[in-house]
Amino acid sequence: MSNRPVLICGETEGDGISSSTLELMRAGKKIADDLGAELSLVIIGNNISGIADEAASYGANKVYKIESPLVEKFMADLWVGALEKLCAQVNPKVLLMSHTNIGMEVAPRLAFRLKTRLTTDCTDLEADKAENLLLCTKPVYGGNAVAIFKYKEEPHFATVRKKIMAPAEKVSNKSEIINVAPDMDASAVKIESLKIVQEDAVSLDKAEIIISGGRGIGGSEGFKELEEMAELMRKSSGSVVEIGGSRPAVDLGWLPSSRQVGLTGEKVSPDLYVAIGISGATQHLVGMMRSKKIVAINKDKKASIFNIANYGIVGDYKEIIPAFNKKWRELS
């Protein structure tokens, strides 16, 4: 067994390990097995002993714990520095992060410092056993193509899209937990965090039904119509129903960015996805095309959303939705 591990940079979520980290651990384990390497995990934060203990149940050989009050909140500058040092210490063969806000910010900077090449937002990872390399599959061109990257530079470094892989399951063997001296310097922080403002704690990925609006909605007013529809459905079916939106709807300020579905927003796969006034730019389709059933309502027949919809209505949602709601009530 190689002494150069597959190292996963974990994230915490509340008091626990994040679900995306667990997903990474499953993927990482397979890679490690295929390459004949150990699996290691690193967790960074303040007061994270409990989390480290929990994390030790998911099959990693080692769990590195970097604890410091300086990283109570996520601090990119400190994370990058800490990880750079850790890598120098453990010399990982493969380095994996989730394609989360943290991963997006830390990975490129870290890759630069480690003088390696990074593939971001991967949807699949595979070990090339013959060449002892990592194959990273990644949608490119807004999802219009899929590329596989294979770089020789080490550590092989990738960030992985959430919700693509199943999370790792607990195992009986506990990982060895290694405390790493934080060696953090507050002066390294160049960005002053003034405050964090909570806006809209929605988890689109947990919704069973998503009613999404796009540029065709015409304004934030229009979303009230959609909200009424969502409320109706919530009541009648008991499902988790959420409002979502395309990038233009978010960019135009009609919805908070947490509700954005698409390439740079959430990628979702609910039972029913109702796309209203969404033309279907690939960048949006990438985020919702895995939905089990898709309904599209659009005035423009040429909208490409219809290409991936199960049901389509060509027309003005302002006329269609009230009638839909009325009928739905009748039927409920």
Binding site: I297, F306, A323, K326
Partner: peptide
């Protein structure tokens, strides 16, 4: 996917049919 377009003589009717 093979999109099935909801028919109807008016938008309202289409909306009802979808429901």
């Amino acid at each position: 996917r093979d999109c099935q377009f909801i028919e109807g003589d008016s938008p309202e009717e289409k909306g009802k049919n979808l429901a």
